[in-house]
């Protein structure tokens, strides 16, 4: 009872506090009526079916991308290479899609997903392997690998894999309309959303009900104990990294197969970095990732309306996101302290 109350009340308090702070900034600096701004934000993010679809579309890549941080985090690793895995995943998917050409679409789609996941997985597994065998800090190596991945993608897109027809937006050849992954029936949101939700559910079930999940929990809790129990820590580290990278690679694949239709620099627009944020905010819990991503998607979906109606700069929503995140993180401290503690025997 007490826990359930806190789970609702603490984030609600944090959101309320952020709204107040943001309102203050709007009223004092931008001279905008905060109530009007909040009303518009609601309209832009959740006010209609159109807005909901807008929000969900923006949330979709974040869900998959955040798993790249959340999965290895179970073992105590801090991986921030999401963007790199996503970008290379997209590149691999496009290469596969173009190479397979006229094969049956389903086959091409499966091949694209597999190659995207494979390359993304390998990329982050590299960070895991370097940590395990060479002792290289995985946070810095995954960040470096991201910059290298983006450079590689740009090199291939503007060099060896460039379609001369792509003129002013250098891109690989198109994968073809037949091979694109469409939208979920009944809504104008691509399949990336479903992939993300399913992936989170799968991860949750794996972590909760399998020996693997338990082993990972042990390693995350105390690697020394885990080694004494005879667990092969290195294998789990590399596996978790690979799985996380594969999720980000799949996010890149979906960008190519459902949105862009080809690989180009639009893959590197920051979904990976936003994914890191989502993972930390969700405390790496796979089921919390989905609502956090939707919250983030909603805020960015509402940004356009704030720009158009109130003439606020695009950065207004970034400020709000920042305030909300800091407030929610700081509010963690309130758990167990919100209600006066009952006498415990």
């Amino acid at each position: 009872m007490r826990q359930a109350f806190e789970r609702i009340a603490v984030p609600a308090l944090a959101l309320l506090a952020s709204a107040l702070l943001f309102a203050l900034l709007l009223a004092a600096y931008a001279q905008v009526d905060p109530f009007e701004a909040f009303e518009l934000m609601y309209e832009g993010a959740f006010g209609s079916w159109f807005s909901w679809q807008n929000t969900l579309t923006r949330a979709a890549p974040l869900i998959l991308a955040s798993l790249c941080t959340a999965l290895p985090a179970r073992l105590g690793l801090v991986i921030i290479g999401n963007e790199g895995a996503l970008v290379l995943g997209g590149l691999a998917a496009a290469a596969a899609g173009v190479a397979m050409g006229r094969a049956p679409p389903l086959l091409v789609q499966v091949a694209m997903c597999l190659s995207g996941m494979l390359l993304g997985g390998l990329w982050i597994a590299l960070a895991g392997a370097l940590r395990q065998w060479r002792g290289v800090n995985e946070t810095i190596s995954s960040l470096l690998l991201t910059y290298i991945a983006i450079a590689l993608m740009n090199h291939f897109v503007e060099g060896p894999l460039r379609d001369p027809e792509s003129l002013n937006k250098p891109s690989t050849a198109a994968i073809g309309d037949a091979n694109t992954i469409g939208t979920i029936p009944g809504m104008d949101v691509h399949w990336g959303l479903a992939f993300g939700v399913v992936a989170c559910l799968l991860v949750y079930l794996l972590q909760r009900f399998t020996t693997w999940g338990f082993a990972m929990q042990v390693i995350g809790g105390n690697p020394k104990t885990a080694r004494m129990m005879g667990l092969d820590v290195g294998r789990y580290v590399i596996l978790a990294c690979a799985a996380g990278g594969a999720a980000a690679g799949l996010a890149g694949t979906v960008e190519v197969a459902a949105v862009l239709g080809r690989a180009n620099a639009s893959l590197a627009v920051g979904y990976g970095y936003a994914g890191i944020l989502v993972a930390f905010l969700a405390r790496h819990h796979p089921l919390a990732i989905v609502p956090v991503a939707i919250l983030l998607g909603g805020i960015s979906a509402s940004g356009g309306l704030l720009q158009r109606r109130l003439d606020l700069p695009d950065a207004a929503v970034v400020v709000l996101q920042g305030i909300i995140f800091v407030a929610i993180l700081a509010s963690e401290t309130l758990y167990g302290r919100l209600l006066p503690r009952k006498q415990e025997s």
Binding site: Y29, A315, V318, V319, L320, G322, F325, V326, L329, Y335
Partner: peptide
């Protein structure tokens, strides 16, 4: 100050503040 509160994670708070400060700088 925020990280000093019990149970607050400093890596996550850092990422949150990075977003906040960048956004505020662009805004102002």
């Amino acid at each position: 100050g925020i990280c000093q509160l019990p149970r607050v994670n400093d890596i996550a708070t850092g990422i949150g503040l990075m977003l906040f400060a960048t956004g505020l700088a662009f805004f102002l």
